[in-house]
Every structure is written in structure tokens, then in C-alpha cells.
């Protein structure tokens, strides 16, 4: 039993980390009232930037390269999401349409530049990806150590810490209260002197930053190169985690962990009693079916922020 846990927990954390980051981004954006279908594209941009930066500067930064790569990817992700912010907040474009365009644009730009710079549709493998490590001291704790702190990617713990920070920001600070108010009832928020447009811009930029971070972590831990098939659906799965987690940061984290679990099962289920009998197809579609069931109210009710998806027009009722 312990062996099984020691093999499965690190895998779950490994698959979940990118989903957690990106889903948290989705929570910020949607809590402010801006639907973000573009999470997938933001992850693509993050993965692209993370890999390219890593390939280019591996010699300069050595062991720090993956960390600097994800920071750069975070910044570029935020910048890229500004397109979504301008279109959906200022220009009142349909947020779903804008998100779809973000997805197309990100993949187009990523693969286009890859081909221009490398002459092929796929980059080389990076020299400095993230590697799994044993966390000193903690991994020596009996029972818990081998399960949670051996052969682990530090980024997984960063993701969980960020989830708690996101919860604190959204629920324990004035900024978070304002952001949620804007997503529930923008007119009331506006009446109270909150700048609705500004809050929504900030929220979308945060979602871009976290989406970029998630994409780069995915690329630098799981695939190690960039091509058109680096990010295939992880962004949409993160979006599912946002909803399955009921638009709550910790809920989204839990959902992302669960989806990571489902993904990891399709990898490590052989050898685990009971689970190895479940056909892989059920594990593959589980995240999506569960999200639909959650939305339909079969697994508790999932209600979106009231003003989600509605552009705010100052002075209109």
C-alpha cells in the first residue's frame, strides 16, 4: 500500500502542477466576470516562451535556467493576455469569441516562430528542464517522507503554495473583495467607487501570468520541447477544474489534483489493484464527464459568478 502511494502521489503532483497554476488563473479572470476560454492559448504561449528561453539561455544561467524561464513565460503570458483584456473589457467583444481567437493566435504564433527560428516544427529538447529531487530533511520523515517528498518536482509545491496565496488574496484582502464584487455585480461595485475596468484588466492579466506559468511548467517538466502538440487540451482541462472547483482557488486546486490523478492513473494504473481493471477510456473522459455532472447539479451546484461573461457598460442598467 505504501509503495503504491509512494509511486502515485508524486505522479499526481507532477501532472497536476500545470493544471493548478492555469486553473488559478482562470479563477481570477472568471471571478472578475471575464470568461477565459483562452487558457489553452495562454498555456501554449507559456510553453513556447519557457522552452525557447531555456534553449537560448541554458549556457548563461546554468542551473537557474528553468526558474528564470518560467518567470519570463509568466511575464509574456500576462502581456499576451492583454489582447484578451482589451478585446473583451474595452471593446466589449464576445469573451468566448476572443478566447477562441487567443487560442488560435497563440498556437499560430508559437509554431510560426518555431519554424522561422529553428527551421522545423519542433524544437530540440531543452538542456535544463526541471528535475525531480528529494527534499532535504522532509524526505527523511518515515512514511510521509517517501510518499510526499521523494522524487518530487519543487514546482508542484510551488503550485500548491500559490493556490493558498490566491485564496488569501481573493478572500482575505480588500483587493480580492473588490475583484469578486466586480464579477458579481459590477454596477454596485462601480457605485462604491471600484474601477470595474481596471479590476477586470488586472484579473485577466493575472490569468495570463498564471496560464503562462502553467504552460511553461508543463513544458519544462513533462515534455521538454515545443511543437504544435505540446499543449493539447491542458488549458481546457484547467478550465474544467475552475468550474468543477466552483470558482474557488482551493476548489480549483482540488479539482486540478483530481484531474491530475485521473491523468496519472492512465499512466501508472497497471499494478494497482482495482484500478488496473478500469478501462483507460473511463479515466480519460472522467474529468470532462464529472465537470458536466457538476454543472448539471448532480454533484453539488456549481454557480458561475453572476456577471461572468457580460461586458460592463458604465451607466447602463
Amino acid at each position: 500500500m505504501l509503495d503504491i502511494l509512494a509511486s502515485i502521489v508524486p505522479t499526481v503532483l507532477f501532472f497536476s502542477a500545470p493544471l493548478i497554476f492555469t486553473a488559478l488563473g482562470g479563477v481570477f479572470s472568471e471571478r472578475s466576470g471575464v470568461i477565459n476560454i483562452g487558457l489553452e492559448g495562454l498555456m501554449v504561449i507559456g510553453a513556447f516562451v519557457g522552452i525557447i528561453f531555456n534553449l537560448t539561455f541554458a549556457d548563461v544561467f546554468g542551473n537557474f535556467t528553468p526558474w528564470i524561464s518560467i518567470i519570463v513565460a509568466t511575464i509574456v503570458g500576462a502581456l499576451f493576455s492583454a489582447i484578451h483584456a482589451v478585446a473583451s473589457v474595452s471593446f466589449r467583444a464576445d469573451q468566448t469569441v476572443s478566447g477562441v481567437a487567443i487560442n488560435m493566435l497563440a498556437l499560430g504564433v508559437g509554431v510560426y516562430l518555431t519554424k522561422v527560428w529553428y527551421g522545423k516544427g519542433q524544437t530540440d529538447m531543452v538542456a535544463e528542464p526541471f528535475n525531480s529531487t528529494n527534499i532535504p530533511i522532509l524526505s527523511d520523515i518515515p512514511i510521509i517522507g517517501p510518499i510526499f517528498f521523494e522524487g518530487i518536482y519543487i514546482t508542484s509545491y510551488v503550485a500548491i503554495i500559490v493556490a493558498f496565496i490566491a485564496w488569501f488574496v481573493l478572500y482575505k484582502t480588500a483587493f480580492g473583495l473588490r475583484l469578486r464584487a466586480v464579477g458579481e455585480h459590477p454596477m454596485a461595485a462601480d457605485t462604491n467607487g471600484i474601477n470595474v475596468y481596471k479590476m477586470r484588466y488586472i484579473a485577466v492579466l493575472i490569468s495570463g501570468a498564471l496560464g503562462g506559468l502553467g504552460g511553461s511548467v508543463f513544458a519544462l517538466t513533462i515534455v521538454s520541447n515545443f511543437s504544435h502538440s505540446t499543449i493539447v487540451g491542458q488549458g481546457f482541462m484547467s478550465l474544467a477544474a475552475v468550474i468543477f472547483g466552483k470558482w474557488h482557488p482551493l476548489g480549483a486546486m482540488g479539482a486540478a489534483l483530481f484531474f491530475g490523478f485521473a491523468q496519472s492513473l492512465s499512466v501508472v494504473s497497471t499494478g494497482i489493484p482495482l484500478l488496473e481493471d478500469i478501462p483507460q477510456i473511463y479515466l480519460l473522459i472522467a474529468p470532462y464527464v464529472l465537470t458536466i455532472l457538476a454543472l448539471a447539479g448532480f454533484i453539488g451546484r456549481a454557480d458561475a459568478p453572476r456577471a461572468n461573461g457580460i461586458p460592463y457598460v458604465k451607466g447602463s442598467r
Partner: peptide, 25 residues
């Protein structure tokens, strides 16, 4: 020229069409 240029063009066309509502408005 990589074929992906066309995907970029299509994405940009979508942005312009979607955002044209502000112009119309």
C-alpha cells in the same frame, strides 16, 4: 513561409470582426 501564418491571419480576422462591435456601437 510557415503554414501557420494562415492561422495567425484567421485569428486576427476574428479579433477584428469581434471587436468591430465597438466601432459599430
Amino acid at each position: 513561409v510557415p503554414t501557420e501564418l494562415v492561422d495567425i491571419i484567421i485569428a486576427i480576422i476574428i479579433f477584428f470582426v469581434a471587436s468591430s462591435y465597438i466601432i459599430r456601437w
